[in-house]
Design a protein around this nucleic acid. Structure first.
Lengths: 212, 212
DNA sequence: CTGAAAGCTGACCATACGGTCAGGATGCAA
DNA sequence: TTGCATCCTGACCGTATGGTCAGCTTTCAG
């Protein structure tokens, strides 16, 4: 039990408990959805009494909001890949890699995000109308420039972005289906690499950025 | 009220009520998830007393199961497009069209399906391990043959299928996000057509079935 | 016409859930 | 050491939900 439970500093206590709660919440929300998740389940998974959750997060909604915002941050970070790039090959490759890595490392977060959007984004509507829209518009502009410069075919930038989101996110959200079709086993390192390579090749070739 | 409520035949009553319930359930399950959906909400939307739902569907689980199986049927029908085709251009085009049409006409069903899979397919696991697996294996074989016949590049058939599923399903599951980024308006006929064309062009070009 | 089967429903119940709170334990600054 | 702020939690509460049921109405075969 109290093997290495030397006295913790207040700061640490707070940080660690919040972290444990958020991690547990992410998993439970991903597996059961907002409505199906219970504070008790989250508490058990976090190894804390239920009342303690309410000490850190007043309501279920507030906890959920924190989880969703967390994943949105991660999501946005991957977005930077686009900016540093000099052309579609760099940019889109890096973006696909980054988003696939998120799908692999944060499948629960991805599912929560998907769930949130599917249910009409009750929490994230504001972000979608501001941050996300701005980000998208910016990337559309970049892609448009690449097209003008003859670096790729004239593909509708928005639909291209949707395709990138869809394809990469799919490996998290539908991971269970993919796993089932993979003989019940999670994708291996090699299979993940192949997935990435396939996606990159098809899309980059498809938009005329790579020679056919 | 009772304007055209001439006596109904028993059969009709049963069929119509079940239909109304399933339709309402599909919508509520899509919007709230299984856990967030309530029988009361479904009953209200179907215009029936709650107790009446339980007359037709004993439990919430049973109702949910029916909804999920319904959408799976529709999903499988689109699958036939693949078989009649003589090559990737026909087959994949038709499949994309069919799946996009499902995303457009049955967004709620698509969301329920996505939700089901995201939560580990508690209801559909059997189908996934039998019907879906067989279907997938069959299509993989077809694609493999197309590759052998030189009708397309050697792309991993499974990842190609995932890409098709992901890209088309995205327009239903993330419809709210797309709508928000589209200025809060649903995609027009024309935009749907453009979406389809873009997807088809990028993928068919990407796999080397169309000249770059 | 009649009786039985099918369809319907308001009222009810047990449970589970989100949330509260009083009061105890613990760290930490002075 | 002391006092206080933070941290913790068992016990509790009101409500909403899935589900039941007794008894009503409607259809329809014979």
């Amino acid at each position: 039990m109290a093997e290495s439970t030397r006295p913790m500093r207040r700061q640490d206590i707070r940080r660690e408990n919040e972290k444990a709660i958020l991690l547990a919440a992410e998993k439970v929300f991903a597996e059961a959805g907002f409505g199906g998740a219970t504070m008790q389940l989250i508490a058990d998974l976090a190894g804390l009494p239920k009342a303690n959750l309410h000490y850190y997060f007043a309501t279920k909604e507030e906890l959920y909001r924190s989880v969703v915002q967390n994943i949105f941050e991660i999501w946005l970070q991957a977005a930077n890949c686009f900016d540093a790039a000099r052309g579609p090959i760099d940019g889109i490759s890096a973006y696909i890699d980054a988003k696939m890595e998120i799908s692999r490392r944060h499948p629960d977060g991805s599912k929560v995000w998907a769930s949130e959007v599917m249910h009409g984004a009750p929490v994230l509507q504001d972000y979608m109308e501001s941050t996300l829209r701005e980000w998208t518009d910016g990337r559309v502009e970049i892609i448009r420039r690449w097209i003008e410069e003859g670096k790729m075919d004239p593909v509708d930038p928005r639909h291209l972005l949707y395709m990138l989101w869809a394809t990469t996110q799919h490996y998290a959200d539908f991971g269970h289906q993919i796993e089932t079709l993979n003989g019940g086993k999670a994708l291996s390192d090699r299979q993940w690499r192949e997935a990435k390579e396939n996606i990159k090749r098809v899309i980059l070739t498809g938009i005329g950025a790579l020679p056919a």
